[in-house]
C-alpha cells in the first residue's frame, strides 16, 4: 500500500529523501513537518528570538537540503538537520552580537526591535525560561549547543555525538558541567 505523504506519513526520512530527489515535492513538506518543531526549539533556545529562530530554521533547512551530499546517510537525517540548524542559529547569534557591538562602539542607537522581539512579547514567557535563556548565553558555545540539542532537540547522547562529531563521553561531560554552571547561575529557581 502506498503511504500518505504528509504529517502522518509512515515513510522514514531516508525514503522521503529518496522521493525528494526523485522530484516529489510533497516529500519535502513531510520532512519539514516532521522536524520543524524540534529544529525551531533548538534555534529559539540558542537565539532567544522568535523571528531569528524562524530564519535560522529556514536557512538551516535550505542548507541541509542543498548539501545533502555531505550527509551521505552516515547518521540520521534528523542529526544532520540539527547540526546545520544549530550552526545557522549560532551564526545568526554571532552576527547579531557583532552588529550590536558595532552600533555600541559607534555610539548609535540600536534599531527598533523587529516584530517578535518586542519586550512585551519576551515577557510572555515564564520567568524561569527567561532566566535559563540568559544563563545559557553565559555558557561556552559548545556546552550550550550540546545542552540545547539534548534538551530541546530531543536527541539522545548518541544522536548529539553524531550531530557534533564528538564522542558520547564528551557529550556526557559537556552536559554535566553545563548543568553545574546553570544550576549555579539559576540558584534555587530550578524545580526538582
Amino acid at each position: 500500500m502506498r503511504s500518505v505523504t504528509g504529517p502522518t506519513t509512515t515513510d522514514g526520512d531516508d525514503a522521503l529523501l529518496a522521493r525528494h530527489r526523485a522530484g516529489d515535492a510533497l516529500a519535502l513538506n513531510a520532512l519539514f513537518l516532521r522536524h520543524r518543531d524540534a529544529a525551531y526549539r533548538v534555534a529559539y533556545r540558542l537565539l532567544s528570538h522568535k523571528e531569528d529562530a524562524l530564519d535560522a530554521v529556514q536557512d538551516g533547512f535550505v542548507k541541509a537540503m542543498q548539501h545533502i551530499g555531505r550527509f551521505e546517510q552516515r547518521s540520521s537525517f534528523k542529526t544532520w538537520l540539527m547540526r546545520v540548524v544549530s550552526n545557522a542559529a549560532l551564526d545568526f547569534g554571532r552576527a547579531r552580537r557583532r552588529r550590536d557591538q558595532l552600533k555600541a562602539a559607534a555610539g548609535g542607537q540600536l534599531d527598533p526591535e523587529p516584530p517578535g522581539h518586542e519586550p512585551q512579547v519576551m515577557l510572555e514567557g515564564t520567568e524561569l525560561r527567561e532566566r535559563l535563556d540568559g544563563a545559557l548565553q553565559r555558557l561556552p558555545e559548545q556546552q550550550r549547543r550540546t545542552f540545547v540539542l539534548h534538551m530541546d532537540g530531543g536527541m539522545s547522547y548518541r544522536e548529539v555525538a553524531e550531530a557534533l562529531e564528538i564522542s558520547v563521553g564528551t557529550v556526557m561531560s559537556r552536559l554535566f558541567y553545563a548543568r553545574q554552571k546553570l544550576k549555579a547561575l539559576l540558584a534555587d529557581r530550578v524545580p526538582t
Binding site: 518543531d37 525551531y40 526549539r41 529559539y44 533556545r45 522568535k50 524562524l54 512579547v121 510572555e124 514567557g125 515564564t126 524561569l128 525560561r129 535559563l132 539534548h150 534538551m151 530541546d152 530531543g154 552536559l175 554535566f176 548543568r179 553545574q180 546553570l182 544550576k183 530550578v190 524545580p191 526538582t192
Partner: peptide, 24 residues
Amino acid sequence: MGDEQAGLSPTNEFLMDELAVPMP
C-alpha cells in the same frame, strides 16, 4: 550532584513545561 543533574534534565517534566518556548 545527581539531584542537580536531574533538575536540569529533559526527564524533569515540570521543568520542560516551564521552559516551553513560544511556537510559531
